[in-house]
């Protein structure tokens, strides 16, 4: 009954570097993976084996060479990321998939608070009241992630790696979405903040989200996982 929220079927990925004599870098031969609501799948495997790449394929940041990546949103319709139009993908990212990348991409001049609050605003809705409540909620998240209040009005370009990562987490987890992709969210965090992130992941699971995550810290992985999947399974024999 629990229809998988995320299904990867026979997904392959090869990088072709045309300007280096068409050098080919195969990453995945055949990904088969299903994730349902309430699951937290932790991806395992040595560094360089493509864990981040897998998340990026789901998010349509990378393009797969073959296979299907089916994501089912709140409307219960499955969309194949590999075949979707840009417009569909934009909507998918807005409504259905949250992605915490490894590094915060810094936008000049936008304050930490605004970066987080903006993700709660649907584009085109400049309602001042909505903005008020978005800011209130953003502040709660920043507090919870122990970002000092004096930093809230500053653009994160000058923040430490750990602070930037916490902004990244807040920005991409604050809006509840059915599917959450986490790429090393606790890499630069201390114990207290790492525990907070674990709590956030549990809360997301509890509300029915499906999560796929990469955690460099084995203990964190164990604390959150409902299941482990090794990405080496998806790579070809010759690799």
């Amino acid at each position: 009954m629990n229809k998988p929220l995320l299904q990867l079927k026979a997904v392959a990925k090869v990088f072709t570097l045309h300007n280096q004599n068409s050098l080919q870098i195969p990453v995945f031969d055949h990904i088969d993976l299903e994730v349902s609501a309430g699951e937290c799948v932790v991806l395992d495997g040595p560094s360089g084996m493509g864990k981040s790449t897998l998340l990026k394929l789901i998010y349509a940041n990378y393009r797969s060479n073959s296979g299907q990546i089916l994501v089912t949103g709140a409307d219960a319709v499955a969309l194949d990321v590999a075949q979707a139009t840009p417009r569909e993908l934009i909507a998918l990212r807005q409504q259905t998939i949250g992605y915490v990348s490894q590094f915060l991409r810094v936008i000049p001049r936008v304050s930490a608070l605004d970066i987080v609050a903006e993700s709660l605003m649907e584009e085109g809705m400049a309602d001042p009241q909505l903005w008020e409540s978005a800011c209130t909620e953003a502040k709660q998240w920043l507090s919870r992630l122990r970002i000092p209040e004096r930093l809230w009005s500053l653009p994160p370009a000058t923040f430490s790696g750990g602070e930037q990562q916490r902004i990244n987490i807040a920005r991409n987890m604050i809006k509840p979405r059915p599917l959450l992709l986490l790429d090393e969210p606790t890499a630069s965090l201390d114990a207290a903040n790492t525990n907070t992130v674990i709590e956030l992941i549990h809360e997301a699971r509890a509300r029915g989200a499906a999560i796929v995550g990469i955690f460099h810290d084995v203990h964190v992985g164990q604390a959150v996982a409902t299941r482990h999947v090794s990405v080496t399974n998806f790579r070809g024999v010759a690799q």
């Binding site: 990088f15 300007n19 990026k56 349509a60 940041n61 990378y62 393009r63 840009p86 993908l89 934009i90």
Partner: peptide, 30 residues
Amino acid sequence: HRMVVMHRGAVVESGLTDQLLDDPQHPYTQ
């Protein structure tokens, strides 16, 4: 949100901006 890459009058690649910049497919885009 989206990007179109032009080379010698032709559109060589198009799609989501981050996809084209992070995983460019066409030789010219790369």
